[in-house]
Amino acid sequence: MRDVAALTEEYADAASSAPHGRSAELVLQDGPLRQSVLGLAEGAELSEHDAPPAASVLVLKGSIEIVGESGTIALETGMLAAVPRERHSVKAVVDSVFLLTAVTDI
């Protein structure tokens, strides 16, 4: 069992002190289900990448933007959204931490 509040602070701190402004850890794995905590310092970005077959993002702290071909999804603390099933990037508007839940095989 993991303490999400503690993970939020840990990955916010790690991202702000990392040279590339990012921190991440796979915190739960169960068959094709993966949950990862990702921290991004203000302005840091996960460059464009493919989406898994199914995924969602829950913002634990801060504000992020998911940018894909279909547009931009702006999310703030406490907001939950499906990840678009297209190539996309993720950018931190402010120091942010989010929980990515992904299914890697359907």
Results as ranks from 00 to 15, higher is better:
residue 20 H to S: 11
residue 34 R to F: 06
residue 57 V to P: 00
residue 104 T to R: 02
residue 52 P to S: 13
residue 36 S to P: 08
residue 87 R to P: 09
residue 6 A to M: 03
residue 41 A to I: 02
residue 8 T to I: 02
residue 90 V to K: 05
residue 78 G to Q: 06
residue 106 I to Q: 08
residue 8 T to R: 07
residue 21 G to V: 09
residue 23 S to C: 09
residue 12 A to F: 09
residue 3 D to I: 00
residue 45 E to D: 12
residue 18 A to H: 08
residue 2 R to Y: 13
residue 87 R to Y: 00
residue 94 V to K: 08
residue 62 G to R: 05
residue 88 H to C: 05
residue 2 R to L: 12
residue 8 T to S: 04
residue 25 E to R: 15
residue 76 E to L: 03
residue 68 G to S: 11
residue 83 V to L: 12
residue 90 V to C: 04
residue 26 L to E: 15
residue 13 D to V: 14
residue 73 I to Q: 11
residue 6 A to T: 05
residue 77 T to P: 00
residue 58 L to R: 11
residue 48 E to L: 06
residue 103 V to Q: 07
residue 65 E to C: 07
residue 64 I to F: 05
residue 58 L to H: 14
residue 69 E to G: 11
residue 36 S to L: 14
residue 38 L to F: 13
residue 67 V to W: 04
residue 17 S to T: 15
residue 97 V to G: 00
residue 46 L to M: 11
residue 46 L to I: 15
residue 73 I to Y: 05
residue 70 S to T: 14
residue 11 Y to A: 05
residue 99 L to Q: 00
residue 71 G to T: 07
residue 69 E to C: 04
residue 100 L to C: 03
residue 9 E to N: 13
residue 40 L to K: 05
residue 82 A to E: 13
residue 49 H to C: 03
residue 81 A to L: 05
residue 86 E to F: 01
residue 95 D to I: 05
residue 49 H to E: 11
residue 17 S to A: 13
residue 91 K to N: 03
residue 100 L to D: 02
residue 1 M to F: 11
residue 21 G to K: 07
residue 55 A to C: 10
residue 58 L to V: 13
residue 6 A to D: 04
residue 27 V to C: 12
residue 53 P to M: 09
residue 43 G to P: 01
residue 7 L to F: 06
residue 55 A to S: 14
residue 58 L to C: 10
residue 18 A to D: 10
residue 41 A to W: 01
residue 5 A to E: 13
residue 93 V to E: 03
residue 41 A to Q: 06
residue 1 M to R: 12
residue 8 T to P: 04
residue 69 E to L: 10
residue 35 Q to P: 02
residue 104 T to I: 02
residue 74 A to I: 12
residue 101 T to N: 01
residue 94 V to W: 01
residue 76 E to V: 10
residue 10 E to N: 09
residue 38 L to S: 05
residue 50 D to C: 08
residue 1 M to L: 12
residue 102 A to N: 03
residue 23 S to I: 11
residue 28 L to R: 15
residue 49 H to I: 04
residue 18 A to W: 03
residue 83 V to W: 04
residue 41 A to P: 02
residue 21 G to F: 09
residue 32 P to N: 02
residue 95 D to K: 03
residue 35 Q to T: 06
residue 43 G to V: 00
residue 53 P to N: 06
residue 6 A to W: 00
residue 74 A to Q: 13
residue 41 A to C: 03
residue 51 A to S: 15
residue 56 S to F: 11
residue 4 V to Q: 03
residue 28 L to A: 15
residue 1 M to Y: 11
residue 92 A to Y: 07
residue 89 S to I: 03
residue 60 L to I: 07
residue 97 V to I: 00
residue 13 D to L: 13
residue 54 A to W: 10
residue 38 L to N: 10
residue 83 V to E: 01
residue 23 S to K: 12
residue 43 G to D: 01
residue 9 E to M: 10
residue 98 F to R: 00
residue 71 G to R: 06
residue 28 L to C: 13
residue 94 V to Y: 02
residue 31 G to N: 09
residue 69 E to N: 09
residue 77 T to E: 14
residue 76 E to P: 01
residue 19 P to R: 08
residue 80 L to I: 08
residue 53 P to K: 07
residue 6 A to E: 07
residue 21 G to I: 10
residue 105 D to I: 00
residue 22 R to G: 00
residue 29 Q to V: 13
residue 85 R to K: 06
residue 42 E to S: 11
residue 46 L to D: 02
residue 79 M to N: 08
residue 35 Q to F: 00
